[in-house]
């Protein structure tokens, strides 16, 4: 199988960057997209060229590192997948594949396909946790949680922080990420104690980082590898009203 990769090359943040085309041969349709990039990088090493910088970690769809914009979609042509779970069988032999880094003011390009997603870390640092004394794990049934509540919290907690929501959003909004993190904790009894402050601080940081407004296009929930619903954003908005008016 042969593909032409049209890849964004950028030495560092300050540089302008441009697309460069690579004709890559000896690919198989069973390769994952990241393996294809590995394969391309091996050929670049042999030629003595700088390899293409891209992020990855687990390669099994749970770490959220491999954020790449492929052929006009975050993580490629399928809904709800990560780049590492995208395989070359999704492309036709001879295709040209355009590969770009996430685009958002809050996600500056570090090099080639790698962007700095530390804006997400700073949002988490404003309340994406509960204040509790550390030590041995408490008895699991000390605080009883209904199955429906646990499931709802888990659906939000499934967010892997990949940034596809911001990448695909025409406004570069981080509303899906922030709402998932807020709702995950505010749904549970352990998180309720700091619920209002969490909403206040995390949304304030979201504003501070330069993300855009949510206009509910719904693109984020389609590109989210975990299929996190935009109803979470509506719920965050309700929590914001509550924190603003009653807290």
């Amino acid at each position: 199988m042969q593909l032409t990769f049209r890849i964004w090359r950028q030495e560092q943040f300050q540089d302008k960057g441009a697309f460069k085309e690579y004709l890559v041969d000896h690919l198989t349709e069973d390769m994952s997209f990241l393996e294809a990039l590995d394969h391309l990088n091996e050929t670049l090493v042999l030629k003595g060229e700088r390899v293409i910088a891209f992020e990855y970690d687990c390669r099994e769809g749970i770490c959220g590192q491999c954020g790449i914009f492929i052929n006009g979609r975050a993580h490629g042509p399928h809904d709800h997948v990560t780049t590492c779970q995208l395989h070359l069988r999704s492309f036709q032999d001879g295709d040209t594949v355009t590969v770009e880094p996430w685009r958002a003011k809050a996600f500056p390009v570090v090099q080639d396909l790698i962007v700095d997603r530390s804006a997400f870390d700073r949002i988490i640092a404003q309340g994406g946790y509960i204040s509790a004394k550390t030590g041995t794990a408490p008895e699991a049934n000390a605080i009883l949680i209904g199955k429906e509540t646990a499931d709802k919290a888990m659906d939000a907690a499934a967010c892997i922080g990949c940034g596809a929501c911001v990448a695909t959003c025409k406004n570069g909004s981080a509303a899906l990420f922030t709402s998932a993190k807020i709702n995950h904790l505010n749904t549970l009894p352990q998180g309720k104690l700091e619920a209002d402050q969490r909403v206040r601080d995390m949304t304030a940081q979201m504003e501070e980082e330069g993300f855009g407004h949510c206009s509910f296009t719904g693109a984020c929930e389609v590109e989210c590898p975990e299929g996190i619903s935009i109803a979470n954003i509506a719920e965050m908005n309700a929590r914001y009203w509550k924190a603003r008016l009653f807290a």
Binding site: F69, G72, R73, R103, N171
Partner: peptide, 16 residues
């Protein structure tokens, strides 16, 4: 301002 650079290819019709 939050999206200063546009994608070269963007198929948002497929997700919204």
């Amino acid at each position: 301002k939050a999206k200063p650079v546009k994608y070269a290819v963007n198929l948002h019709k497929e997700n919204s």
